[in-house]
Structure formats: C-alpha cells, structure tokens
C-alpha cells in the first residue's frame, strides 16, 4: 500500500503543518512516511503545497506529480493539481473558498467547508486541521486518534486552549464527512 497525497493552498493556511500532521501520524501508526515542501519566497499569500507519502513499505521517491489524494484549500491549487489526481483517486476541496464548476467524473469529489467549520470550532486558522480530520475519516490511512495525539504533543507548549481548539477542528472535519467513505 502506498498513498501519495498533495496538500495545497496559499501560504498562511497551515499547509505544511497539515501535511506534517498526516506524516507524523503515519509514523506513529507504524507506517513509512515522507514529507516534502514546496513554497514561494513569500511568508503569506503565495502558493504553497507539500507532498506526503504514507506506505507499509520503504518509500522510494518523496516527489511525485500524480496523486492518490489531493487536499485542496484554494482555487488556484484546484486548477493546478485537480487534473493530476489519479483516475479513481480522491479530491477533497475546501468548499468555503471554492465552488467546483466542472467536477471530474473519474475521481471521488468530497467538498468540506473547512473555513466555516474552523471558525465554528474557534478559529479560522484551524482550517488545515479540519481538512486533516475529514481526510482521516474518508480514507483510513492514518487514525484520527493518532492525529489527535500528534496535536496534543505539537501544541503542548501552547496550552490547553489551543489543543482543545485543534481537537475540536479535527472532530468537526470528521463529522462533516460522516457516512462518506472511499
């Protein structure tokens, strides 16, 4: 088994951290994992993506240009990476910011209003975590409980408020796709 994922959006959406959560959880679940970042020189606003591979076998190239799953946080990323999802693959789209005009018939499209759900959870900034929660629920590559553990460790120094916010965001993501499996 190998799952090759792209997590894409603009700088400031927590793309690199979101992909890192998946890779870290995969490692904790005993899988091989790689994470590779790609971003422009800007701190915020530029395009940003990361490639994450999770596998039960040693991983070769950490870089790939066709994806089993694309986690798409903004419109330019949908236009750029949407066509590069394998037929039969999974396309998860941030429907708070993107309306999919012409959905591909050969990929599974899951729309999640991650910004709205993050705001509901307590902060827009947790939109990346909502997306990760939804992904974990739809595709059983990494367990949501493991991602929750990773969040607790990662934000340990930031205190219980930040941890609770992120755990809530993760749960809202999971609930948003209840009943959807791929």
């Amino acid at each position: 088994m190998i799952e090759e994922i792209i997590f894409a959006g603009f700088g400031g959406q927590g793309i690199l951290l979101g992909g890192g959560l998946i890779a870290q959880a995969a490692m904790k679940d005993g899988l091989w994992a790689t994470w590779f970042p790609s971003y422009g020189p800007e701190m915020r606003g530029g395009t940003c993506n990361c490639l994450v591979a999770c596998s039960d076998d040693e991983i070769g190239s950490p870089i790939f240009n066709v994806y089993d799953t694309a986690l798409i946080m903004n419109l330019p990323s949908l236009e750029k990476f949407g066509p590069m999802v394998h037929p039969g693959g999974l396309l998860m789209v941030n429907s708070s910011l993107i309306r999919v005009e012409k959905p591909r018939s050969d990929v599974r499209l899951v729309e999640v209003p991650v910004n709205d759900l993050a705001r509901e959870a307590g902060s827009d900034r947790a939109a990346n975590v909502v997306m990760v929660g939804a992904f974990c629920a739809v595709r059983s590559i990494v367990r949501p409980e493991t991602v929750a553990d990773v969040l607790r460790e990662k934000f340990a120094s930031k205190g219980p408020k930040v941890i609770d916010l992120n755990l809530r965001a993760l749960e809202f993501g999971r609930r948003a796709v209840e009943g959807v499996t791929v």
């Binding site: 890192g20 890779a23 490692m27 091989w32 994992a33 790689t34 994470w35 590779f36 970042p37 991983i59 950490p62 870089i63």
Partner: peptide, 9 residues
C-alpha cells in the same frame, strides 16, 4: 536540496 528539506522518520 530534496534530502535536506524533506522530512521522514
């Protein structure tokens, strides 16, 4: 550059 900036366990 890839080995330098990639993460893995």
């Amino acid at each position: 550059a890839v080995l330098g900036s990639m993460m893995e366990p």
